[in-house]
Write a protein that binds this DNA or RNA. Structure first.
Lengths: 130, 130
DNA sequence: AAATGCGGTATCCCCGTGGTTACCGGAATC
DNA sequence: GATTCCGGTAACCACGGGGATACCGCATTT
């Protein structure tokens, strides 16, 4: 009839490792946040500054999620006004090789063809509100 | 007043390399498709078999997108019934180090805590249609 | 003649996501 | 007293992606 179905040469996943690790990075700007925490702990406002197009709402949500997934720790500093410092956990640092691999692909892309994507998320900016 | 804003120790992106490479992997199951094409070319039905929970609609859409992004080639075989074979391009293969890095994180996760995520996409299965 | 395999496409519709805007409290500065 | 900085939260809402289902043409098999 047709061609025979060939057996895959890569492992069949009872639980898919790729899916598992991608779940850790789910949500807009999550990989970017990890990237900016990779070198040193950063405060909320610093991250906002690092990632200019992120909104406070989304940054806050993302940090809470990353914290609940065990990738990031949150530490409130006793200053005034109070500030909060975020850092990668050991688990968070385990993602750095993947992030670096992605970054180096992106660098080659930009070097060869210039930038094409502008926003990490699917959503486009709406025209206005109200 | 508050603490001074510390300069980031990682590069400020005029164009963000991380964002660029993630744009290549956008869409449900895209990384999984790349994974299953990593060892050898695969046909449409084989990929459906490899990724049991993907629908034909989404697999088709994803393959067209990956093709238009230059990660995958499509080759129609002259058989009956006709079949199509998909393969990674050189650009597609450049993503493999990142995919492998993610996979190895996922393997550690599963080995240590068992599986938590079940679906690669945000969407949950709805109860029924019609 | 009917069923099966292959490689899709068309339609419908839900709902998760993230952008936008407004607002909070306390301390320090102007 | 007013404004600024900090680190958020609350409410509203448009959008688009993907799941489900039905269907297609062709050729071979039963």
């Amino acid at each position: 009839m047709g061609l025979p179905v060939r057996k895959s040469k890569v492992a069949a996943p009872p639980a898919c490792p790729l899916t598992e690790s991608l779940a850790l990075l789910r949500g807009a700007w999550a990989p970017n946040v990890i990237w900016y925490l990779s070198a040193e702990p950063r405060r909320f406002g610093e991250l906002r500054h690092d990632i200019p197009r992120i909104s406070a709402r989304v940054l806050s949500a993302r940090l809470r999620e990353l914290e609940s997934r065990g990738l990031v720790t949150r530490c409130v500093l006793d200053t005034s006004p109070p500030s909060a410092e975020y850092a990668l956990t050991d688990l968070g640092r385990e993602l750095l090789p993947a992030i670096h691999a992605l970054t180096s692909v992106g660098q080659k892309l930009i070097a060869e063809w210039g930038t094409t994507a502008t926003t990490p998320t699917i959503r486009r900016t709406r025209v206005a509100a109200r």
